[in-house]
Amino acid sequence: MNLTSDQQILWQHGFVKLNGTIVTTWAMMIAMGLGSKLVTRKLKTEGAISRWQGLLEIVVTGIEKQIQDVGLNQPKKYLSFLGTLFLFVALCSLCIVIPGFRPPTGSLSTTAALALCVFVAVPLFGVRGQGLTGYLRTYTEPTVIMLPFNIISELSRTLALAVRLFGNMMSGVMIVGILLTITPFLFPIVMTALGLLTGMVQAYIFSILAAVYIAAATQVHKQAVSKAPPSG
């Protein structure tokens, strides 16, 4: 039994290979891009709007509000990254209701890729927010002794992000697959519904944790500056 869709090799040429994870991800990308293009093609700026436009506005403004609630005062700067994280993971979780669909987020490679993206994005946003030295100084907070611990914390939380999402998504799919062989009737449906719930929760957790990491990286220096006595 394949644990992940990575092992479904569709095409391979040396190191380069095309597996199920990549193909489903492309399908998800095409669906999301085309859906967005179709919905935003006829946006209305006044009067009654379409239901799809209303839904997307609710989703976008909801994500924006969540980012703002985390502490990022300019949510539009982070909306593309964090919103895409949430939408991708959430849509992958929703698609488990499709029979035979194996979500890309059930692959540790995908979750590791997402966690790596967060791992890279956090210092990028931090450097953009408070400069290179300002960001690097956060690793020595509160004292220099904490530098290795901070680095370990940065790496471990990336690993935790990847494994948490992978474990939850993969376990849900695996449980449904196992139960289908034992009790092929009602119980897998209940577990699928539960998997939908946990998938949405994991999407929210993943996005919020990424936002919290970015907020921590961009605001530590500001807090230090605000605590410093006024000069001059």
């Binding site: 644990l3 990575d6 290979k17 991800t25 490679s109 995908t110 590791a112 997402l114």
Partner: peptide, 10 residues
Amino acid sequence: LIDWFTVGAQ
């Protein structure tokens, strides 16, 4: 469990 090409592609 981790295929690094897939990680990069993803």
